[in-house]
Design a protein around this nucleic acid. Sequence first.
DNA 1: AATATAACGCAACCTTGTTGCATTAACTAA
DNA 2: TTAGTTAATGCAACAAGGTTGCGTTATATT
Lengths: 126, 126
Amino acid sequence: MGVIRKTKAVEVLLKEFNSSSVAISAKALIEQLRDTFNKTTIYRVLDKLEDDGILHSFLGKEGIKWYAKCNGCTSTEHNDVHPHFQCLNCGRVDCLSFTVPLPQIPNRKIEVMQLLIQGRCEECFV
Amino acid sequence: MGVIRKTKAVEVLLKEFNSSSVAISAKALIEQLRDTFNKTTIYRVLDKLEDDGILHSFLGKEGIKWYAKCNGCTSTEHNDVHPHFQCLNCGRVDCLSFTVPLPQIPNRKIEVMQLLIQGRCEECFV
DNA sequence: AATATAACGCAACCTTGTTGCATTAACTAA
DNA sequence: TTAGTTAATGCAACAAGGTTGCGTTATATT
């Protein structure tokens, strides 16, 4: 696949992810950019950025897709396996920087691990 | 909420979960029982069984909902937090019996943790 | 057996995400 | 700089998982 052309959509979305370190849901981006880009475009650009190893995606609560910047991934391998934290109060999702030790399970080959931690974020923590 | 009446749907679904220890997706149950029950009924019964602490649910790949039997949960509290394993080859999902140590994160309150491990199960492991 | 009402079936709907196709706009090279 | 190629876009229609409203059925109670 690969991002070949620097279009407005690519530029705007990249800026969005570079300006903060939190994860953003496809849904939120579509709402936010409703007047600028078609949802199809946004889905396609996100797909591509993921293929290129620039973003990674994961599923949050209710099965909706979230995206965040990758660290150290290439288009051939997504190495950036870390937990995500979703605040049950404000809905915010961000990447946690520590890595979780992958358990060894006999006779199984582990390929991916998705760890979603939910609770109250720093802002909503009283 | 609470399951009040012992209907056929409740009976059949409970039997389904008692006869094996793997997780079953709502989707699969609907397909399997298509000629017997309406999908609305199946969704509602699963909801109830979850509320009652008999089943627990989690999201698998593609955001579809899976259910499995609980161990030691009540209608007021779901304590049964363990990882799930989804085989990327045959699609089978089951509960892993070990618990994962919850990390402590400063200034955040952790309430739920969802760990989905994906790879190749015992049967599909070559 | 009569009654109250939880549970059911059906159809219609909602949400997130995808696909086909005609149009537009980046890049390439003359 | 312009002409040509084709990737990227917008639109509309669709798809899948799941939910809702409401009239009907069946379970439990008396």
